[in-house]
Amino acid sequence: MSTPLNIVFMGTPDFAVPCLQALIDSAHTIVGVVCQPDRQRGRGKKLSPPPVKVLATEHELPVLQPDSVRTDEFYKALQALSPDLLVVVAYGKILPEPILELPRLGAINVHGSILPKYRGAAPIQWAVINGEAETGITIMQMDAGMDSGDILLIERTPIGPQETAGELFDRLSNMGGATLANAVDKLAASALIRTPQNHDLATTAPMLNKKMGHLDWSLPANKLQSLIRGLDPWPSAYGFIQGKRFRLFQPEVVLQQTSEQPGTILRADAQGLLVATGRDCLLLHEIQPEGKKRMEVATCLRGNPIEPLSLIG
């Protein structure tokens, strides 16, 4: 077996937790964990640690939480750890070149797409929104660009026809841990080949925003179905029915033509809301009235009757 590596792990949110756990369970040594500072959360604005810090603390790993990664103080703190490798998973900040080049094996990143497609902050959501049949995990050697470094390893997986971005997020998070562990073992044994990305094939995956959720019913039903799934659980799709805002979930394409204008509710019953679109129809199985919990349409209709042939604006 190759010599175990000394690793500094950099990550912050839930997505990074299985990757940290995979390294904890490996033969390699985690000499330090870097995550973003604790943030105020909830109505009480109580300071809460990020998920990666919680796991690191449980395993008594040293944790650094710098306000900035561009200070001499932080660079010297990393240097003192003498890492062989830097592993970065959804850390949340762009790292300067001196830090990327500090370990003898550089820095690698776990990215939730098949690069060079979907570089950026929301690769999982955009793959669903765009109706992709598959996605995956890419282990990449980091450079100064945005997700533009050489590819070390790719693991692919199909996207289910009804799978939401949230469900896919959880699957890829766990897949990321297993793929990372495999890649680090191979890297330690000098058994990985660096493959440059074809930058001409690159696409971007910018951050989502709440305005994206206001549906344009003139779009075809299959496009709307992918968009609703891609925005679930956040920021979620929505429309206005009888002047009230409703979040919309669990869409199903119904191959049915109608002369009614897009956005017309053709049926509202226990099966869901059947809505006319620019092509075919969309059956929504779950809905969330403003200020209430997400629920099946049948449950919602008992307290909020919705008239057929009304419009979702």
Rank of each mutant, 00 (worst) to 15 (best):
L81I: 12
L47E: 13
W217Q: 09
R267C: 08
M140G: 10
T29Q: 15
G166W: 01
K223P: 00
L81T: 09
I306Q: 06
A188H: 10
Y118A: 10
L273I: 02
Q256H: 14
L86R: 07
E58T: 06
F15M: 02
L273A: 10
G136C: 08
P37H: 01
S310N: 13
T277A: 03
G313I: 14
E101Q: 15
Q288E: 15
A205S: 13
A183R: 08
G176A: 12
A237K: 07
D67Y: 00
Q256W: 07
R294S: 08
D67K: 05
W126T: 03
T179E: 06
R43C: 02
T71A: 04
S190M: 05
I154P: 00
V89M: 12
A268M: 04
D84Y: 05
P83Q: 12
R247Q: 14
P220R: 14
G303V: 05
I114Y: 03
I99E: 13
V31P: 09
E296V: 07
A178Q: 14
H111C: 00
P49Y: 05
P123H: 01
M140R: 10
L274H: 10
P262N: 13
Q197L: 03
L282F: 12
E260S: 11
T277V: 08
P96K: 14
I139T: 06
M175V: 04
I124N: 06
T277K: 13
A237Q: 03
L187G: 08
Q141Y: 04
L168C: 07
R41D: 04
T12L: 01
V184S: 12
L85C: 14
A188T: 10
T179G: 05
K53S: 11
Q40G: 06
I94P: 06
I287G: 07
G131T: 10
L78E: 11
A202W: 05
G263H: 03
V88A: 09
M212D: 07
Q162C: 05
P235Y: 11
E132F: 01
D280W: 15
A22D: 03
L95R: 14
P206N: 06
G136W: 14
Q271C: 00
A270N: 12
A268F: 06
Q242A: 15
T135N: 13
I108L: 10
E260Q: 14
L231N: 10
T179A: 14
L301F: 01
S26K: 06
G145E: 08
Q125Y: 03
N174D: 13
S173F: 05
S2Q: 11
L255Q: 15
G136S: 09
D84W: 09
P262K: 09
A268Q: 10
D84I: 11
R41A: 11
L115P: 08
C19H: 02
D269K: 07
H199N: 09
P196S: 08
F246T: 05
Q141A: 15
A121N: 06
P123K: 03
Q79P: 02
R39C: 00
C281W: 14
D185V: 01
N130C: 05
S173V: 02
V69D: 04
S82G: 00
R156H: 11
V8A: 11
L115T: 04
L274E: 04
K223Y: 02
P50V: 00
V17H: 04
V253E: 06
